[in-house]
Amino acid sequence: MTTAAGASGDSQVASKLGLTAGQVVQEIGWDDDVDEDLRLAVEDAVGGELVEEAVEAVDVVLLWWREEDGDLVDGLVDSLTDLADTGHIWLMTPKVGRDGYVDASDLSEAAITAGLAQTVSATVSTDWAATKLVRPRGTRR
């Protein structure tokens, strides 16, 4: 487990991820190695708990992914299931040199194959980096 930066870092994480109160965030890929402080910061920013099984369209998917998790394209396509047309995915991957690191070229190729576009990347904790993925403008409704 890692730490994001404590209470003072929470608003910075929320700002980096562009999260706002009232958004519904679905979490996929949770395991013992995720950053619990980051998860709490996301919950604080949106004012609610992360959902595992969505009953309605979600605004954001928080997808924790490691190289050994399998085919990233499949993971990205699966994360689109409950995502609102205007929503986005924050793909959380271990930083360079950490166990489970996903090569940037693999990430880029998987995003394109899944029909997504990379927009921004952010360092969000000691061990995790975030990449924002969206549907290309022409495919959003």
Rank of each mutant, 00 (worst) to 15 (best):
D99V: 15
I89T: 11
S79R: 11
A110N: 03
D106I: 00
A110M: 01
V124P: 05
H88G: 07
L107I: 03
Q118N: 09
G100Y: 09
V96T: 09
A117W: 09
A117I: 13
T113R: 13
V124T: 08
E109A: 15
D82Q: 05
D85I: 05
V96C: 00
M92Q: 12
L76F: 02
D103F: 11
E109G: 08
T93C: 09
V77Y: 00
K95H: 03
G75L: 07
G100H: 05
V96P: 02
H88C: 10
A111R: 02
G97Q: 02
L72K: 11
A84D: 15
T119N: 12
V73H: 05
M92S: 14
S105G: 02
S125Y: 04
G97D: 06
S108K: 09
L76A: 04
T119P: 08
V124M: 04
T119M: 14
T86Q: 12
L76N: 02
A104P: 00
K95W: 04
I89V: 15
D85V: 10
V96N: 07
V96L: 13
I112T: 09
G115D: 10
R98F: 10
D106V: 02
V102G: 11
T119I: 14
A111I: 06
A84I: 00
Q118T: 12
L72I: 13
L80R: 06
D106S: 05
D74L: 10
Y101W: 15
L116A: 03
G97N: 01
D106M: 06
D103K: 12
I89L: 13
V77S: 05
G100A: 06
D74F: 04
A110C: 04
T81F: 00
V124Y: 12
S108P: 00
D74N: 12
S79E: 13
Y101H: 15
A84P: 00
S108E: 10
A110V: 03
V96D: 11
S125T: 08
S125K: 04
D85W: 11
D103C: 00
L107S: 03
E109M: 08
T123F: 01
L72Y: 12
I112C: 00
D99H: 14
W90K: 11
G115W: 10
S79H: 09
V96W: 12
H88N: 13
D82N: 14
R98N: 10
L72M: 13
A114M: 06
V73I: 14
A110D: 01
I89Y: 02
K95L: 09
L83K: 07
Q118F: 04
V120M: 08
A104V: 08
L72H: 11
I112H: 03
G97T: 01
V73Y: 04
L72P: 08
M92T: 13
W90G: 05
D103G: 02
D82F: 02
G75T: 04
A117K: 15
G75I: 01
P94Q: 07
Q118D: 08
